[in-house]
């Protein structure tokens, strides 16, 4: 007997269990793009990512009767996906398991802003901006919103350490809540926030350099 599911996913689960293909199709269309992106962070090739997602969908269908709705359907699906992607990634020896994460993350220093931009210890205004940021209100909107700028942001994210890249992608690109990210990646709230902070700070800094350059270019 399938377990009884309550909550917002109940109707969808009932349709899936009843073999309603259109319910499955809508689920595939809703989550597969994000699943592919997430899988791609653990495995080397797009083809491997597609395999992992396919395997995950099979896992979802096979597990339907066991699903109790204690987490959301979305969280459950993405947990199945990350477990499979991690296993596959470890076989390819690419991924660092999230559970091995220290608070210091992957890169040593991890300051949001270059310390040289603040007055140094010993000066009267220690820790105050020596070289404050310039407001982006002055940047022409078409430059801020241009494809070039978007590409630059995308490339910056690609170059982040894996854990930071995963967290900023899920939170800010996919728009997940911190709770969803925590549950799917199995990390603490603090780790989630530290990784997000590092990632966002680096993207901001890169964007600042990029936009400042444009100003001087004319």
């Amino acid at each position: 007997m399938p377990r009884k599911v309550r909550g917002p996913d109940a109707a969808l689960i009932a349709s899936l269990r009843a073999g309603d293909e259109s319910a499955f199709t809508s689920l595939v269309d809703m989550y597969s793009a994000a699943m592919l992106r997430l899988a791609r962070m653990y495995v080397r090739t797009q083809a491997a990512a597609e395999d992992v997602v396919q395997e995950a969908w099979l896992g979802v269908l096979k597990g339907l009767d066991r699903f109790e709705g204690r987490s959301s359907l979305k969280t459950w699906i993405f947990r199945i996906l990350t477990n499979l992607a991690k296993t596959r990634g470890e076989r390819e020896s690419r991924s660092v398991p999230f559970s091995s994460l220290g608070t210091d993350g992957e890169d040593g220093e991890g300051r949001a802003v270059d310390p040289d931009r603040f007055f140094p210890p010993g000066s009267e205004s220690v820790g105050a901006w020596a070289s404050p940021p310039t407001p982006w209100e002055d940047v022409p909107e078409e430059r801020l919103l241009s494809h070039e700028t978007q590409d630059f942001v995308a490339k910056t994210i690609e170059m982040l350490p894996e854990q930071q890249r995963t967290v900023i992608t899920l939170r800010d690109v996919e728009g997940w809540s911190s709770e969803e990210v925590r549950n799917v990646l199995d990390i603490t709230e603090t780790n989630q926030r530290v990784l997000l902070h590092r990632a966002r700070s680096k993207v901001r800094a890169a964007l600042e350099r990029y936009l400042d350059q444009g100003q001087t270019d004319g």
């Binding site: 597969s32 396919q54 700028t149 978007q150 993207v203 901001r204």
Partner: peptide, 30 residues
């Protein structure tokens, strides 16, 4: 303000496309 703008910029990166061949494979699972 720049951090908030950064978050908004990053939020515009989503591409909601699934390669058609992959989509077919996923649907076949069902």
């Amino acid at each position: 303000a720049q951090m908030r703008t950064t978050i908004i910029r990053v939020g515009r990166l989503t591409e909601e496309t699934i390669p058609p061949a992959a989509r077919d494979k996923f649907l076949e699972v069902f």
